[in-house]
C-alpha cells in the first residue's frame, strides 16, 4: 500500500502572549503514516491534540517542528514549510477537510456551496450541480432548502450541507474532523457509506471520530495521540 501521508517528528505548541507569554505544549514527536485507501483514526481524550494534528496537516495551524509529507503524483510536498500559494493549491486538488461546522457565505445557495469544490477542480458546472443534488438527497437535506443560502438552516442541516461539500470532490487525502458528531443514525450510516466509497477510490483518510460505532466501522487503524503528549517546558 503506497504511503500518501507521512508525519515525521511533528511538534506544536502555542505561546499565549496575552497571558504573559505562557507556552502551552500540544504534541511532540508525532510520527505516523497513512496509505492509499486507508482510514486512520486518531484516538485519545479531548485535549490530547487530535484536532491540532489535523489542522497542521491542512496547513491551518503552523507546524513548529518536523515534517508533514504528502505524496502528490510523483512529487513529495512538505506542508510544514510550504508557501501559502502551495497550500492553497494542495487544498484545491489534494487535501480535503470535512468538519461539522459550515462557514456560511452570504447569499450563496446550499447546492452551490456543495458544488463549489468540484467546480474549482475544473468540473463542468452542470455535472457538479447534479452531483451536489445527488449528495444532498443522500444526506436527507430537504429539496426545498437546496436553493436557499444555509445561513438560516438548523445546525444539523448546515452540518449535512458541509459533509456533502467535503465529500463531493476527489481529494487523494481527506481529513475528517468529527463529521458524524450529533448526526442521527440514518445520516451516520450515509457517512459510513461515503467513507467506504472513498476507500474504494484509494483515498487516504485521517479522522477524529468520537462515535464508537462509526469508528469501528470505518477505521483500519487507530493511532493513539496520547503517545505524542508534549511535556510542559
Amino acid at each position: 500500500m503506497p504511503v500518501r501521508l507521512y508525519l515525521s517528528h511533528v511538534g506544536k505548541s502555542f505561546t499565549m502572549h496575552l497571558q504573559g507569554g505562557t507556552t502551552i505544549p500540544v504534541v511532540s514527536g508525532v510520527d505516523f503514516s497513512v496509505g492509499e485507501g486507508e482510514c486512520v483514526v486518531l484516538g485519545g481524550p479531548s485535549g490530547a491534540g487530535k484536532s491540532s494534528i489535523l489542522k497542521m496537516i491542512y496547513g491551518n495551524y503552523r507546524c513548529d517542528q518536523g515534517q508533514i509529507l504528502v505524496t502528490v503524483g510523483d512529487e513529495i510536498v512538505n506542508v510544514a514549510d510550504s508557501e501559502p500559494r502551495k497550500i492553497l493549491q494542495l487544498r484545491k486538488d489534494v487535501i480535503g477537510y470535512v468538519s461539522q461546522f459550515l462557514r456560511v457565505i452570504p447569499r450563496v445557495p446550499a447546492v452551490e456551496v456543495v458544488a463549489e469544490p468540484l467546480i474549482l477542480q475544473g468540473a463542468d458546472e452542470g455535472k457538479a450541480l447534479a452531483r451536489a443534488r445527488d449528495l444532498l438527497t443522500r444526506l436527507n437535506v430537504p429539496e426545498r432548502l437546496w436553493g436557499l443560502p444555509p445561513a438560516t438552516f438548523s445546525g444539523g442541516e448546515q452540518q449535512r450541507v458541509n459533509i456533502a461539500r467535503g465529500f463531493i470532490a476527489h481529494y487523494p487525502l481527506l481529513l475528517l474532523d468529527e463529521p458524524t458528531a450529533s448526526l442521527d443514525a440514518a445520516n451516520r450510516a450515509v457517512v459510513v457509506e461515503l467513507v467506504a466509497e472513498k476507500k474504494q477510490d484509494g483515498v487516504a483518510m485521517v479522522g477524529i471520530l468520537h462515535d464508537q460505532d462509526v469508528r469501528d466501522r470505518i477505521s483500519d487503524r487507530i493511532v493513539d495521540v496520547t503517545a505524542f503528549r508534549a511535556e510542559a517546558a
Binding site: 502555542f14 502572549h17 496575552l18 489542522k55 491551518n60 495551524y61 503552523r62 501559502p84 497550500i87 492553497l88
Partner: peptide, 20 residues
C-alpha cells in the same frame, strides 16, 4: 501568511490581540 493560518494560529502578540 495564509489568511486562515494567521487568524486561527496567530503568532505575534499584536496579532493575537487583534484576533481576540
Amino acid at each position: 501568511g495564509l489568511t486562515d493560518q494567521v487568524l486561527d494560529d496567530p503568532r505575534e502578540p499584536y496579532t493575537q490581540l487583534l484576533v481576540s
